[in-house]
Amino acid sequence: MRLRYLGLALVSIFVASWAAAQSGGGDQRRTGYQDMSAPLQQMEDDDTANPGMLFVQAGEILWNAPAGKANKACADCHSAVDKSMKGVAARYPAFAKDTDTLVDLDGRINLCRTGQQQADALKPESQDILALSAYVTRASRGLPIAPPADPRLVKVRAEGEVLFKRREGQLNLSCANCHDDNAGRKLAGATIPQGHPTAYPVYRSEWQTVGSLQRRLRNCMIGMRSEPYAYNSAEYVALEAYLMDRAKGLKIESPGIRP
């Protein structure tokens, strides 16, 4: 049903003239939060009404639970999350210090699962990875997105930018067609956001659960009738790195709410 609406809405996008180039001084960036209705904003702001907090709570339990052959808890090595993980989510994707591999936050957590705890990697979008990720990200709530200066990331971001601006899929659209050229306009009932990743992991009412940024990107790709990448693929991590850089300085709001 959503696809049909999308088709209709796309026609109107193409008929209408492309948005005028953004001009003038000042930061023109807006987060999806600013485009949400007041009741949804209140739901996000109230920790006892925000269902994302249920995952944060679940993450706290996992953080303190010994796991794997090493029988170690995250807390055994990292102590309290509000100290050790403050600002961490704001700088991923990054190259992991101990293994030199490029990972997003969920990938980093899984490196610790497999390498440090000697446990199985957590499956993409499983409740446990979302809970741990939400718990770690919450320690950065309110902090500005701060991608690392690591020169190796320059190439990764450039790859992400290519993917963002490249037309693809049966509708021959790029991410930029919506999130750069038509942000603020309507796609059926939804306001097209600028596409900043401040809210992730996010509680999305349409999903009725928490999901990762990769799940969000997968949704957009299905909307473009393009073949979504596999979870944890280099393409998603490159897109995430580009999006984080594009949103540099905007504040982390996870666990966010989105319609």
């Binding site: 920790d47 006892t48 009404a49 249920l54 679940a58």
Partner: peptide, 8 residues
């Protein structure tokens, strides 16, 4: 994993 949040 069951968990709840109460605001009172």
């Amino acid at each position: 994993m069951a968990n709840a949040l109460i605001n009172a």
